[in-house]
Amino acid sequence: MDKEKQSRTLPGPVPEGFTLFMALVDCLPVLFFSVSSAILAARFNSRLFQAGVLLVILAGALKAGWKFVIALRHRDLRFLNKQMRYLMPAGFLLIILALFVDRGRWSIAAVIRHMTNMPALFLFLTGAAGMGLMVWFAQKKDRRDAKANWKEQITNSVAQFCIMLGILL
């Protein structure tokens, strides 16, 4: 087995600074997204939408699981981290497709009205800014660096919390 293939399949060196507290905090954005998407899935009855949501939640849960394995077992099971680049985009793609395929089940005018009322507008804009930062982090930061992970987690938690509050309001 060549070195590159081996590095993708076998557990690697354990990243430093990944604690149990970090793993627990990484569950927050998954929880906030789960609440938000459960509310939306109940209002927008679409199997395609629900499948997409499940993929996104699974991706987040597996990423948090990666941190739990590092913190508790001192092992780096890379597939738990790397799966996000496949599952999360696939989940969001299904969610977007559902908006087109099942467009008769929701009203864009009602969504825009809800999103542009205060304080929902502020919350959604804050959430969107946080998601923009997350894209930047994904491109520029080392996912195996604890300090970068803390920045990512805090940003993601705040963004998902704001989006959840915007949906709840």
Results as ranks from 00 to 15, higher is better:
Arg143Ile: 01
Gly104Tyr: 04
Met115Phe: 12
Lys140Met: 13
Leu121Ile: 08
Ala51Leu: 11
Ala109Asn: 10
Ala61Asp: 00
Met131Phe: 14
Leu10Phe: 11
Leu99Lys: 01
Leu80Ala: 04
Gly12Met: 08
Gly52Gln: 05
Leu133Tyr: 10
Phe137Val: 04
Leu48Arg: 06
Met134Val: 03
Ala51His: 05
Met84Gln: 12
Ala90Trp: 01
Ala51Arg: 04
Ser37Phe: 15
Gly12Cys: 07
Leu121Thr: 03
Ala23Ser: 07
Leu133Asn: 09
Gly127Trp: 03
Lys147Tyr: 09
Ser107Thr: 08
Val69His: 02
Arg144Glu: 15
Lys82Gly: 08
Lys82Pro: 00
Phe161Lys: 00
Ile167Ser: 01
Val35Leu: 12
Val111Arg: 05
Gln160Asp: 00
His114Arg: 10
Lys82Thr: 13
Arg143Cys: 00
Phe44Thr: 05
Met1Val: 11
Ile154Arg: 03
Lys82Val: 08
Gly132Met: 04
Gly17Phe: 07
Thr126Asn: 00
Lys5Ile: 14
Ala64Ser: 14
Trp136Pro: 00
Ala128Trp: 09
Trp66Ile: 03
Asp26Leu: 02
Met118Cys: 00
Asp26Asn: 14
Ser36Gly: 12
Ile95Gln: 11
Leu72Asp: 01
Met1Gln: 10
Leu87Val: 01
Ala109Thr: 11
Asn45Ser: 15
Gly166His: 06
Asp102Thr: 08
Phe18Ser: 03
Lys3His: 13
Cys162Gly: 04
Leu165Arg: 07
Glu4Val: 14
Pro13Val: 14
Met22Phe: 11
Leu97Ser: 10
Ala23Trp: 02
Asp145Glu: 10
Thr126Glu: 02
Arg113Asn: 15
